[in-house]
Computed example of a mutant assay.
Amino acid sequence: MHRHLSVLNGPNLNMLGLREPELYGSTTLEHIAADCTRMGTELGFDVFFGQTNAEHELVEWVHDAFRRDASVVINPAAYSFGSVALLDALRMLRTPIVEVHITNIQARDAVHQHSLISTVSRAVIAGAGAYGYELAIRVVDRVLREGRV
Rank of each mutant, 00 (worst) to 15 (best):
L23W: 10
L135M: 15
E30C: 04
A65Y: 03
S6A: 13
A70C: 08
L16G: 11
N9Y: 08
L93F: 01
T103M: 03
V72P: 05
I137S: 01
I137Y: 05
L58D: 05
L87Q: 06
G44E: 04
R94P: 14
N9L: 08
V47D: 01
Y79E: 11
T95Y: 01
A34E: 15
G82W: 12
E146A: 01
L116D: 02
T27F: 06
L43W: 03
V62C: 01
I97S: 06
L93M: 05
T119F: 15
W61R: 06
Q113H: 07
L18Q: 14
E22C: 11
E42R: 11
G17R: 02
V124L: 13
E30S: 08
H4R: 15
V84D: 10
P76F: 13
V84W: 05
R3N: 14
G132V: 02
G10I: 02
I105D: 08
L86H: 06
A85R: 13
D35K: 04
A126K: 13
L5E: 10
V139E: 06
M92V: 06
Q51W: 10
P11I: 05
D141F: 08
F48K: 07
V98N: 03
F45P: 03
L23Q: 14
D109M: 11
T119C: 14
Y79R: 09
V120M: 00
R122D: 13
E20M: 15
G147F: 03
T28G: 11
M15V: 04
E20F: 15
T52Q: 11
R3K: 15
T28F: 10
A110M: 00
L93S: 05
T41F: 09
I137E: 02
L90F: 02
T37N: 10
S121H: 08
R19H: 02
E30V: 04
E60S: 10
F45M: 03
N12V: 12
Q113V: 06
T119I: 13
V124I: 12
G44I: 02
G50K: 09
H101Y: 01
D69Q: 15
R148G: 06
R19Y: 01
R142P: 02
S118L: 06
L58C: 09
F81P: 00
R138T: 01
F48E: 10
A128I: 00
G44H: 05
G132C: 05
G147E: 03
E20Q: 15
D64G: 13
D109H: 13
V62E: 00
R142C: 02
L5Y: 07
H112M: 05
L18R: 15
N14T: 13
E42Y: 04
G10S: 10
V72W: 07
S6W: 08
L144H: 00
N9K: 09
P21M: 01
L23H: 14
